[in-house]
């Protein structure tokens, strides 16, 4: 089934739960297992939280999500902000690296996205914003660990 949605919302932490629930409801049409759905929800939560916390630094901005489903049951998620940007993407991707340790960040967000999804690409430009693209194929059993 080919299908697509676009969502955009204010960078408020109350919308983190909304974003997870909305994507999860949309992806449900592919009949994912509970585990696959939980993986996707967690990855969405990580990327949206990063946009709010790091991208906009708790200030006001717009977070956008596009979620596309393709015929081979691949979910493609694109989550963007027009915030601060990431100076060193390689460093940001390292497990436990955080630029906001006093904010009780664990530095595990990107590691979670990488582990729970099949692929992760991060694009960023300073003062322009950040885009995270993630894919996961439903029904491939690749989530069995």
């Amino acid at each position: 089934m080919e299908n697509k949605i676009n969502l955009s919302f204010l960078s408020k932490s109350a919308n983190e739960g909304f974003a997870r629930a909305a994507v999860s409801a949309f992806v449900a049409q592919l009949d994912p297992t509970l585990e696959e759905l939980a993986d996707i929800k967690t990855a969405v939560s990580e990327a949206v939280t990063n946009a709010i916390v790091h991208g906009y630094g708790h200030g006001n901005g717009i977070v956008t999500i596009s979620c596309a489903l393709s015929l081979d049951k691949t979910v493609c998620l694109t989550i963007s902000d027009a915030g601060r940007g990431i100076e060193n993407i390689e460093q940001a991707l390292e497990p436990m690296y955080t630029s906001a340790a006093d904010d009780e960040r664990s530095g595990m967000g990107f590691t979670v996205m990488e582990t729970f999804m099949d692929s992760l690409v991060v694009q960023s430009e300073m003062d322009k914003g950040t885009t995270v693209i993630m894919t996961k194929q439903i029904g491939s059993d690749s989530t069995l660990s």
Binding site: A38, E46, E104, S106, G107, M108, T111
Partner: peptide, 12 residues
């Protein structure tokens, strides 16, 4: 549900 923000809170 829990994500890495929960992990940060536990470590704190």
């Amino acid at each position: 549900f829990m994500d890495s923000s929960g992990i940060g809170m536990i470590i704190g």
